[in-house]
């Protein structure tokens, strides 16, 4: 005999983190980039836009694919707008033009793994 259970919990507006899927577009396609260089590039962009204090929040580079230059970032919710805006305004990587394309932003990491816009059929 099972104990009678039914429990429902609704969690509102509580995401601690936000996740971003971004890809980097470079002027010279052949340029190679490592994960550490990418994180450094983003941090530099943040500092140049918001200054030392404004940029003082941590963010994580969860994955990075070196061949497609696509990365998944995790950031505290309160830093999302600052991170996003500094990505938008970041224009140079080692004297060549570059641009970040923000592909998807979500409070759930799972949502980034199942993007129906990438669905390909056999």
């Amino acid at each position: 005999m099972q104990p009678a259970i039914f429990e429902r919990v609704v969690v509102k507006n509580s995401p601690v983190y936000q996740y971003m899927k971004v890809s980097l577009v470079l002027e010279h396609v052949q340029t190679k980039l490592t994960a550490v260089e990418l994180k450094h590039l983003i941090t530099t962009g943040l500092k140049s836009l918001y200054g030392e204090v404004g940029a003082a929040f941590p963010f994580d580079l969860l994955t990075f694919e070196e061949d497609t230059l696509t990365a998944v970032l995790r950031v505290y919710s309160r830093g999302l707008v600052r991170l996003w805006s500094s990505l938008t305004l970041l224009g140079f990587f080692q004297q060549q033009r570059c641009a970040f394309r923000v592909l998807q932003v979500s409070p759930y990491l799972l949502s980034l793994t199942g993007n129906s816009r990438d669905l390909t059929l056999d």
Binding site: Q2, A4, I5, F6, E7, R8, V9, V10, V11, K12, N13, S14, P15, Q18, S77, R78, G79, L80, V81, P107
Partner: peptide, 17 residues
Amino acid sequence: EKTPRTLLVCERSHLDH
């Protein structure tokens, strides 16, 4: 520091409940 609203609904029960 604002982010869009979200909702996560979790339910717990037994399959035969």
